[in-house]
Design a protein around this nucleic acid. Structure first.
Lengths: 348, 348
DNA sequence: CGCACAATTGAGAGTTATCAATTGCGGTGG
DNA sequence: CCACCGCAATTGATAACTCTCAATTGTGCG
């Protein structure tokens, strides 16, 4: 049975759609706003998403943008619901990669037709990619299916802020899939100093590197806020990885992406001033916050320093500079980026 | 027809073996010392290697040690030839991962028997791994075979010192396999400063990251000395990568290894003094030099600085310190590491 | 011999780390 | 309701490290 997720803030509309789809024998999941929608999509990925455009906090464009960045949710057919059939909106949505557009009010028939069509099309796409698999590296639809199976029905554990998820030198026993929350991984110096190698957000996999190499962890992972994490046992993951081209392609892409980010960081760590590095970290954190639907950045100054590779005091001083220059605002420790552009252009 | 490589410095013995094997219908390749042997093994990998233990410059242990580090040659059955049947030698060789041991003088029969046995065993190993492929990630023998096919019979291009192999922002058109020579890849700052992300030696693949991600190069590759490079066109590599579990596993391992190295570097770049970083770079370079059979390190001070992420002058000063402390010797720019252990233990 | 390039040395300026002290905030027990 | 505690954030002053610029030496080569 196909599962469909509906993200729509007005109860009446949502309820109406649920009814129509349920009657047609779809499994239906609903979310009353974008944030919850994202969480549900990541926790238990559906086969298709119907999403309202106009919603408070996080609008439909935001939802699509965020979901399209995570491998698990990237290839789920995404259909916008919109009250007005404005051309500009239509184009914006389609350019973001939406698959279709339904204008409200709609006729039940119309809805069902569109949904069915998109589901069929997605299956065909998978089949076609399957056939010509030897031409391109990535079979995305098929790969997504396998990722979804990987995370489906797993034991879920919750971690509280500061809890360790795994520690350096431990042997990996499972792959982690972060359903909600934020996790940092860091390496530690002989002298106890710590460098954050990654910050993971909802929808990310975690700990795959040690698992793949079959070596102990070379880093520790700690929850930065309360987290829900699905556990995929090693014995389920590794065979699947070894046997599935699609899955291994997904992880190859992940690894290659990691390398690129690290090289970027190496270059900047080698030659950029603290000022520049703090600016880069701010932009990165801001991006991540926005991808979780938050407007400001919440991070301990110690963690910030460990990201930038410097002392806490230096970070604070630089943030103070940025504040007086009007690039950011700080309120009770929470940082709000005001002028992305100027931050980006900081020289050195 | 199976190909066998013989590495043996005394002409008579070598010739004798060549004759025995040729008569038994093996294709035979010969090398008169360890360095040439390594080069031949990497340029045109055989199915089995016979290698003398006692040789000038680079002995058999060294050859095995070096070949076992490169994916292409790591799983080729390796048999030692030795004059004396000393137990210590036998153990040392086997512990290094040799597959068998033949003491000279030997009887033609004996030689053929051992060779045949090892070839058979290697085939069986591949078959077994094939069957239980779902249990482990890496099918090494099969993977090697595919790697060998990948590099066999390719167009080979030579680059002279300082020649660019590829440049930042270019689109990748092929995978490179370095048959001989040394290549650096580096990223460049807005301000023209350069950070070396990797140094590749004979037997390494090069440029796979951009190829896999199908994006332009984010780094440039330049020959540090004269190089021979085999070109594997994109259209040959990518389909094979997508369809071969073994090959993709090899590259996953490569990528994961890269990440680990980069994280190491990030940590040290963030918090270690120049002194420490120079020491680490020296150890790394020394390792690489020894793996190419050279006793001392040859590197431009500018390149050294770009590895360490500092100014040329700072590197030079630090090297001068090490020299007065007796940790290294410098002769006409060539650096020789004297005290590995102390270099390793430099604090900070 | 002189050129080009690489390596080295010297001196001063600038950046950043470190140590120490202070402030701010939320919670808690009296 | 308030003083107090603990933790995080902030500020200040100083020392240490490293970069930069400039000058000099060394080396191979035509």
């Amino acid at each position: 049975m196909k599962k469909i997720l509906i993200i729509e803030d007005t109860y009446e509309v949502r309820d109406n759609i649920v009814e129509i789809l349920s009657l047609s024998n779809y499994e239906v999941d609903e979310a009353e706003n974008g944030i919850i929608g994202i969480e549900k999509a990541q926790t238990s990925p559906p086969d298709l998403i119907l999403c309202d455009v106009m919603m408070p906090d996080l609008d439909g464009f935001g939802v699509l943008h965020i979901l399209s960045k995570k491998p698990v949710t990237a290839n789920i057919p995404f259909i916008f619901l919109t009250a007005k059939s404005e051309k500009a909106d239509f184009r914006k949505g389609m350019n973001l990669g939406a698959d279709d557009y339904i204008t409200k009010p709609f006729d039940p028939h119309e809805l069902l037709e569109v949904v069915e069509m998109r589901l069929k099309k997605n299956e065909r796409k998978a089949a076609v990619q399957e056939k010509k698999g030897s031409l391109g590296l990535i079979n995305e639809s098929k790969g997504r299916r396998e990722l979804q199976e990987l995370i489906a029905n797993r034991e879920v554990r919750t971690f509280r802020k500061r809890d360790a998820i795994y520690k350096e030198n431990e042997l990996p026993r499972q792959l982690y899939y972060l359903q909600s929350g934020k996790v940092k991984t860091f390496r530690t110096n002989d002298f106890g100093k710590t460098y954050i190698t990654h910050i993971y957000n909802a929808g990310d996999f975690l700990g795959y590197q040690a698992l793949i190499k079959n070596t102990p962890y070379h880093e520790s992972a700690v929850a930065m806020e309360n987290c829900r994490v699905a556990l995929i046992p090693k014995k389920d993951f590794l065979p699947l990885l070894a046997n599935s081209r699609h899955l291994s392609n997904q992880f190859i892409k992940l690894l290659a992406q990691n390398i690129e980010e690290h090289e970027e960081q190496l270059l900047s760590l080698a030659y950029s001033s603290i000022r520049k590095r703090v600016a880069q970290a701010l932009l990165k954190l801001n991006e991540q916050s926005r991808n979780s639907g938050q407007a400001n950045i919440s991070i301990l100054r110690d963690d910030f320093a460990s990201m930038v590779g410097t002392a806490k005091e230096s970070v604070i001083r630089t943030l103070a500079e940025f504040k007086t220059e009007g690039l950011i605002e700080v309120d009770n420790g929470l940082i709000t980026v005001i002028d992305q552009d100027k931050l980006y252009k900081i020289p050195c």
